[in-house]
């Protein structure tokens, strides 16, 4: 779990919030014993979009922009 957090800290400045937070959800789900496959990836991506919409687009809270920042 800790390693997943560290990898997030390292990758977020490059990948940006949307991709890195999706990756964090996917990796945590996998580590916790969730089945790896298309449904898990889809849930992780939907989770990333949900968090991006909630924090960045809706609440205007800063999150790592990454090399190719998404504008709300």
């Amino acid at each position: 779990m800790l390693l997943i957090g560290i990898v997030y800290i390292v990758l977020a400045p490059w990948l940006g919030y949307l991709l890195s937070i999706s990756g964090l959800i996917f990796a945590t789900t996998y580590y916790q014993g969730g089945t790896v496959g298309r449904p898990a990836a889809l849930v992780a991506l939907c989770g990333g979009v949900f968090f991006w919409v909630l924090f960045v687009a809706f609440m205007g809270i800063a999150q790592p922009p990454g090399l190719f920042p998404l504008q709300p």
């Binding site: 996917f26 945590t28 789900t29 916790q32 992780a44 968090f51 800063a62």
Partner: peptide, 22 residues
């Protein structure tokens, strides 16, 4: 597993939001 993933994402997003600092 999904709940844990979402809670972890919520925590790191919240902490970053304090001062936009990794």
């Amino acid at each position: 597993p999904y709940l844990m993933g979402f809670i972890y994402a919520f925590v790191v997003s919240g902490v970053y939001a304090i001062e936009a600092s990794l």
